[in-house]
Design a protein around this nucleic acid. Structure first.
Lengths: 298, 298
DNA sequence: CACATCCATGCCGCCAGGCTATAGAAGCAG
DNA sequence: CTGCTTCTATAGCCTGGCGGCATGGATGTG
């Protein structure tokens, strides 16, 4: 029989959560959709996978058998898709490099120029990711290397080299009372609503909320965004303030947004990341070498 | 990204055939459908998988990378689905037994009774397959054992025990000139149109066409069917004649069909088959033991 | 007993998979 | 050289599936 990996992901989420409503929320679909999709998978397989009750969804023996194997199936497909993309890139001599927001700022250009000098018959294709994926595409296998902001979830499973750091500023809408200040201390911001990254980005979101500087107090979240333009709009609309790299004042200068120096928060660090498999790839190694070369020269 | 195994099967067929039109025919979809589905897979992956030309579809480097891995992905899913079904069967103490047409004739009943005596808390669920699948469901993993007709393609990869054999008769429609005969020699039938099984059943179809008794002459195929009722209809309609097990005169007695003894063809052999994994399954072993027990008593 | 929470069903809208018809390009045979 | 064949691609249409919302039934909780 045929199956869509989407159905398998749905199944895995329900198996993991033990509850259709929570799994639906996690998958960004409605609960009736999920109940119908799970039923369809059961019909297609000819096996009951869950027992239903007010307490939620408990796996049956067949369900446990499937739950044990589905992760490797999904991972297998992801790996094959990634290898296919890598093969496509090699064939067309294109290195796909993932990035978030402004990547490595002005250094990005110098890195690409250096790479072109080193490998004139290759070109770099910059592939933007949302903040929902702080690995900038590495996790999904669609890119060979990525320019990232540290720290981020999944970092431990990747090769990472820090390139440089830059101080962080506070971004506020221009009518905000703090906009007239020369600088602000983070301690003054504990009750300010913040524009945050999605919850599933974990440590990355905590970093940009400066959670470890809040003395255990939870942040006030005014909006959640995962792309720069949405983030800028939320700030300009007064939904919240945000910590931003210093370069944002140059790369994201926007009417209605003021950037202020802020004391009491660590600088943000920019790095280059790649997968362990990239170690065996001379093209990826060359790209990383160019990043490190540009770092030294900066 | 998500993918449907149907798309991967389509890709594999095109990769194998090198031609959309032939692959479409093999997959029982139209050529425009296939061209659209392959394009969609390429868009989803972000990689060109084929170069197109009047000569057909040639794999690119990315296509070759994918083609190398897709069979194991598809086999992996099939195996997981089969294991899930087996787990479901164990949980509900149901042994699913595949069969074709009349299974093991009257012996079927005796086998099931014997199995019930041996394992009173279990039951047998008989699962019919079409002749398109002479393994009677074993290949797809939906059954734990199967009552089969020998020989059949895929047999070498399974465990098989012959149970008994029976002579073959000729089935003709009652207005056929041969219907009045007491018996017929196969040599007289070389120019008769035959009702055949699907081409992809290979050796099984050859067996039922008695191909090795035709001195190299290709059979005349009047119709192709894959289920008993369609087969009987085709014979009764005069589309062709067919070799049939002797038991067909009892199990498929039909107005308008006459069964005649025929000389010059081997008898048909009935067997029980199961997968190598079944050796480790005590329930499957017991079922096979019951089959052998009934064979001895026959 | 009222409410909350869980899963299931019904209905609707939109989109995807499949079809037929047909077009364009290119190779082949006469 | 021309007509035909064969290959893939596109357009338009139809039907079924995916997803939503509204709501129902069952059950646990305060």
């Amino acid at each position: 029989m045929d199956v869509d990996t989407r159905l398998l992901r749905y199944f895995a989420a329900v198996a993991d959560e033990g509850n259709l409503s929570r799994a639906a929320e996690r998958l960004f679909v409605s609960q009736p959709t999920l109940t119908k999709q799970i039923r369809q998978l059961e019909r297609a397989l000819g096996a009951v996978l869950f027992t239903r009750s007010r307490a939620g969804m408990a796996l049956t023996e067949a369900g446990r058998a499937l739950a044990a194997r589905v992760p490797e199936l999904l991972a297998g497909w992801d790996e094959v898709a990634a290898e296919t993309r890598r093969a496509a890139g090699r064939a067309s001599r294109v290195l796909r490099v993932g990035f978030l927001a402004s990547a490595a700022n002005e250094a990005t250009r110098r890195i690409i120029v250096a790479f072109r000098e080193r490998r004139p018959d290759w070109r770099v294709e910059m592939v933007q990711s949302s903040w929902g994926d702080p690995t900038a595409g590495l996790a999904g296998g669609g890119v060979g290397a990525a320019l990232v902001r540290l720290p981020f979830p999944g970092q431990d499973g990747l090769r990472v080299e820090e390139l440089f750091s830059e101080p962080r500023l506070l971004a506020v809408h221009s009518a905000h009372p703090l906009a007239a200040r020369d600088r602000v201390d983070f301690a003054e911001l504990l009750d300010e609503p913040f524009v945050a990254a999605p919850v599933e980005t974990g440590a990355w979101r905590d970093f940009w909320l400066a959670s470890e500087r809040r003395g255990g107090r939870p942040p006030v979240v005014g909006a959640v965004t995962d792309q720069p333009d949405a983030w800028l709009s939320a700030i300009a609309n007064g939904d919240g303030v945000a910590l931003a790299p210093e370069s944002a004042a140059r790369f994201y200068a926007r009417p209605g947004i003021t950037y202020l120096p802020v004391d009491g928060v660590e600088p943000t660090r920019v790095g280059v990341a790649w997968t362990a498999a990239g170690d065996a790839d001379a093209v990826v190694r060359d790209f990383v070498a160019c990043c490190l070369e540009v770092r030294t020269g900066a």
